[in-house]
Write a protein that binds this DNA or RNA. Structure first.
Length: 853
RNA sequence: GCCGGGAUGGCGAAACUGGCAGACGCAGCGGACUUAAAAUCCGCAGGUCCGAAAGGACUGUGGGGGUUCGAUUCCCCCUCCCGGCACCA
């Protein structure tokens, strides 16, 4: 091929081409040099505050498209609020403790700290290149002592208030992570980080945070969170799983064992207790072992049952397990009627819900019914459905279809409680149980206390000391932080790595001064993210944050992140907020008034992942199309709450659009001409008027989107329409637009673009003769409804709902005018020939529908 | 099984309170510019059928039914996809 490079870029001179790399790097440098641009003002600035927050990333090494989407939404909002005159806090930080750093350290033989800080540097550079407007003076890095010392401080406060405690219990263990997991971190029986690794149960001594203390308030609070997605609220309600019921003690006949002489059952239907024909224990229930003793046959059955359960848990299919059980040979006494009922062990009873024991009422519970049918246990009806047409006449009524679990019903076969409604019986029976001391009304939660101990190195050391003489003792506040030692052997081989560092482990007891050892577990990293957004407001040395400053900024006005944190992070941080409020540090009850969960970024129908090889790198996109185009595409391709299907060609389209805007302004920016800043003439040509109308309609649409549904895809489409109108006007009017209008429309176009394509907006703002350094503080354009109004509108004329013709009428034409105009249309007349008009419906501004027969 | 969300051209999507289905963009086709191409600009475009064309007819928002002058939108039933929960007593 002959060399024709001289013409490779066409005849157009180079400066007429949109060159995002040059524009963007130029402005990025300016922004780095002037951090005040994106800095929050002091809390006494007198301005209305707006706190916009995106979830902080884990510094894995590089940003992915999900981050870009998340931060593009937040940045657009922050810029919009700045332009609306708010004092905006828009911070960023690093959730930088955690396992991947340790794994990378093992692999690369470099300390986790180094790996982490390198990643942070890289990702921060990416963020700056992408042009996100963060207040870096507020940056929080959770793996640094200036941050984690406050985790330790909070831990001491929790301990002091009885909200942190140590307990030996069955805990979730991920063999891959070689550490314990909280309940929230177990997904379908597997580790949330290793989705195919089944979680094992281990008996370990662990630190717990008493989240259940606030269970009721966490549940109640959801009602007030009307700025949160309904989906998240439902998930949290389900997770907390409040259930009202009663505890009832069944005394064992005969000798008591290590597990005591009583089986306490939890039931939500104490009203059915006269129908209890057995007591069922969870296989792991402490009494189970007592009752079995050394009976080899029963032990074998129990073992089989446990193995079964383990397997089902691994597959994540507990619900589908076939019901199994066996009679222990012992009996327990129903305190309400003194009856002896057999005690069974059953695999459908969960040890970690309620008390791990139930009374079985086959007639009124589906699962009990199924079990009783299989093992031929007695089924006794004690509740009859109430029929409205017929007054109750117990005894004469037919059997309900079993199992019957309705509550609009009456008790029978229940001694002194016969004839009561279920609700009445529930209250009376619970009261009687309490009075006689064999039970009481109670509330159970599915929510468990938060196990925060982790047997890993790269986390916050738990500030506790063990002394042979004084037992468990907290490290005094004055000795904080307990520093995480450097250069530690962090192989995955059993036990906490900190336990292999004698200088760390061996210490003095704060009480007696004698030799003592430190706690070697570290904290779950969800502790870090439970309160990081408070520290953003004032990262100081003397406290986790300054209360006065936090009280100005809180609650967060808009929190934006992925829905995958609906339970984990968002429950923990709500708990932490309530705890800090009760400490007197803050006044707000909830961390964020509004929450937005953006959709995933997918490609070829699947979530982007290395294993599928469908990952699109933000760096590549920025290098090819620029940051503005990359960011804007993530906003344009789908509404932000829906999943986004990535298409490279789509970014190219946005790039083309930005280039179109650039070329238009390059050609039409004439700030040095005399009439540039003149008033816009009131009399405009039709072409000019169309442009002006479109401009005001566009301002309205974009402003409405920010204030409402956040459908930035339609905002951007509206701006595209405006630009198309401008090009169309150029064709039609050949430069006839008044200069003042041209100036006005271009300036406002640039302002509308500023939240979505900040680099280009700044470049064009300068080209229009304005001070680009103050663009972010320039007032958001306002629309004029009079100017946005159409003079004439097209009305559709239908006959029996089918469009027959269209006609143009004045926008303010009244109903009679429109009706007559429609009926006088030639096409309508011919179409109606021989037909009779039944009705004419006129919808002003829309259509006329003529109903004929 | 239960609770959410979704299904609209070849593709991403739009239609906000029932009122022109498919805005905007991608891919496609045609034209202009060019020796040619790229870039750019202008135009066409749901489907089927009739027509040389202008134009017209029918049909169309996962499927079936209903309410209404009128339904992508409201109601009932069903199918499929995605997410969450799942023996919670």
């Amino acid at each position: 091929m002959p060399a024709t490079e001289g013409n490779a870029r066409g005849d157009r001179p180079d400066e007429a081409r949109y060159a995002p790399q040059e524009i963007e790097t130029k402005w990025a440098e300016k922004w780095v040099a002037n951090p005040a641009l994106y800095a929050a003002e002091p809390f006494d600035s007198g301005k209305q505050k707006y706190y916009v927050l995106e979830m902080l990333p884990y510094p894995s090494g590089a940003l992915h498209m999900g981050h870009v989407r998340n931060y593009s939404i937040g940045d657009a909002l922050a810029r919009y609020m700045w332009m609306n005159g708010y004092n905006v806090l828009h911070p960023m930080g690093w959730d930088s403790f955690g396992l991947p750093a340790e794994n990378a350290a093992i692999k690369n033989k470099r300390p986790p700290r180094e790996w982490t800080l390198n990643n942070i540097a890289n990702m921060k550079a990416q963020m700056k290149r992408l042009g996100f407007g963060y207040d870096w003076s507020k940056e929080v890095t959770t793996c640094l002592p200036e941050y984690y010392r406050w985790n330790q401080w909070f831990f001491l406060k929790l301990f002091e208030k009885g909200l942190a405690y140590r307990k030996k219990s069955k805990v979730n263990w991920c063999p891959e992570c070689a550490t314990v997991l909280a309940n929230e971190q177990v997904v379908g029986g597997c580790c949330w980080r290793h989705e195919t690794t089944p979680v094992e149960q281990r008996e370990l001594e662990q630190w717990f945070v008493r989240t259940t203390q606030y269970a009721d308030e966490l549940l109640q609070g959801i009602e007030q969170l009307d700025g949160w997605p309904e989906k998240v609220r439902t998930m949290q309600r389900n997770w907390i799983g409040r259930s009202e019921g009663a505890l009832v003690d069944f005394k064992l006949d005969g000798a008591a064992g290590a597990g005591g002489d009583t089986i306490t059952v939890f039931t939500t239907r104490i009203d059915t207790i006269f129908g209890a024909t057995s007591v069922q224990l969870a296989p792991e229930h402490p009494v189970t072992a007592d009752l079995i003793g050394d009976d080899a046959l029963k032990l074998a059955k129990l073992e089989e049952m446990l193995a079964d359960q383990r397997k089902a848990k691994e597959i994540g299919d507990i619900g589908a397990l076939e019901k199994r059980g066996f009679f222990t040979g012992r009996y327990a006494i129903n305190p309400f009627n003194g009856e002896q009922v057999p005690v069974w062990v059953a695999n459908y009873i969960l040890m970690d819900y309620g008390t791990g024991a139930i009374m079985s009422v086959p007639a009124h519970d589906e699962r009990d019914y199924e079990f009783a049918k299989k093992f031929d246990l007695e089924i006794r009806v004690v509740v009859l459905p109430r029929r409205e047409s017929e007054p109750p006449a117990a005894g004469e009524r037919e059997q309900p279809i079993l199992p019957f679990s309705g509550e609009d019903s009456l008790l029978i076969n229940s001694g002194e409680f016969n004839g009561l409604s279920c609700e009445q019986a529930q209250q009376k029976m619970a009261a009687l149980a309490e009075e006689k001391g064999f039970g009481k009304a109670t509330v159970t939660y599915r929510l468990k206390d938060w196990g925060i101990s982790r047997q890993r190195y790269w986390g916050t050391p738990i500030p506790m000391v063990y002394c042979e003489k004084d037992g468990v003792a907290p490290v005094p506040e004055s000795e904080l932080p307990v520093l995480l030692p450097e250069s530690v052997d962090i192989t995955l081989a059993g036990g906490s790595p900190l336990g292999r560092v004698p200088e760390f482990v061996n210490t003095k007891c704060p009480k007696c001064g004698g030799p003592a050892t430190r706690e070697t577990d570290t904290m779950d990293t969800f502790v870090d993210s439970s309160w990081y957004f408070y520290r953003y407001t004032s990262p100081i040395d003397t406290a986790p944050f300054d209360s006065a400053t936090a009280n100005y900024w809180f609650a967060i006005d808009q929190y934006i992140g992925g829905v995958e944190h609906a339970i984990l992070h968002l429950i923990y941080s709500r708990f932490w907020t309530k705890f800090m409020r009760d400490l007197g540090l803050i006044k707000n009850d909830e961390p964020a008034t509004r929450l937005f969960t953006q959709g995933m970024v997918i490609k070829d129908g699947a979530k982007m992942s290395k294993s599928l090889g469908n990952v699109v790198s933000p760096d590549d996109m920025v290098a090819k199309y620029g940051a503005d185009a990359t960011r804007m595409y993530t906003l344009f391709a789908a509404p932000p709450d829906r999943d986004l299907d990535w298409q490279d060609a789509g970014v190219e389209g946005i790039s083309r659009f930005l280039s179109r805007v650039y070329r238009y302004v390059l050609k039409n920016a004439k700030p040095s001409e005399a009439n540039w800043n003149a008033a816009i003439p009131t009399e405009l040509s039709p072409v000019a008027r169309r442009v002006q109308r479109k401009l005001h309609q566009t301002i309205r649409r974009v402003s409405d989107d920010f204030g409402g549904r956040w459908h930035f895809n339609t905002s951007i489409a509206a701006i595209m329409e405006l630009v198309n109108e401008l090009y169309g006007a150029e064709e039609r009017a050949k430069g006839e637009l008044p200069l003042a209008l041209l100036a006005d429309v271009q300036k406002k176009l640039v302002l509308l673009l500023a939240p979505f394509a900040p680099y280009l907006a700044h470049e064009l703002w300068a080209m229009l003769g304005e001070d680009a350094d103050t663009l972010l503080r320039h007032a958001w354009p306002k629309y004029d409804s009079a100017l946005a109004k159409e003079d004439e509108i097209e009305i559709v004329v239908q006959i029996n709902g089918k469009v027959r013709t269209r006609l143009v009428v004045a926008a303010d034409a009244d109903e009679t005018t429109v009706r007559e105009a429609a009926l006088n249309e030639e096409k309508i007349k011919t179409a109606m020939e021989g037909k009779q008009i039944v009705k004419v419906i006129v919808v002003l501004g829309k259509l006329v529908n003529i109903v004929v027969r």
